[in-house]
């Protein structure tokens, strides 16, 4: 497990450097682009349809690996935790739900 420690630190350092570099290179352009909409494409999957007909209810919370976003972990309201290792094309249940939550949404 200790070998994993530098991985996150390295990624965070690279991320910080990248963010700084983008800021610096985009300094002048930032004025020009202010208010412009960003380009967006829907490329993601549906947890429900990807589950091959299994009754998967709503996603309450999820996590995306910032290093390898092919790994997604989705916590559903009442059907446990589901994991995708291919960017959401296929899902499998990795941990079942074991009890109800409180009433708050």
């Amino acid at each position: 497990m200790s070998t994993l420690l530098p991985r996150r630190a390295l990624i965070e350092a690279l991320g910080a450097l990248l963010g700084l570099a983008l800021w610096k290179t985009g300094g002048a352009g930032a004025q020009e682009q202010r208010g412009d909409p960003v380009s967006m494409d829907v490329i993601g999957p549906s947890l429900q349809s990807a589950a091959s007909g299994a009754q998967v209810d709503g996603t309450r919370a999820f996590w995306v690996d910032p290093v390898d976003s092919q790994l997604i972990i989705a916590g559903t309201w009442s059907n446990g935790v589901w994991v995708s290792r291919d960017g959401g094309r296929h899902w499998y249940q990795e941990a079942p739900a074991t009890g109800p939550g409180n009433a708050e949404s």
Binding site: V38, S39, M40, D41, V42, I43, G44, P45, S46, L47, Q48, S49, D57, G58, T59, F62, S69, I72, A74, W77, G87, G88
Partner: peptide
């Protein structure tokens, strides 16, 4: 609404 709750990945940059 709980029957449809996809996760979407949207390219933003």
């Amino acid at each position: 609404a709980r029957g449809f709750t996809p996760i979407r990945a949207i390219q933003i940059a």
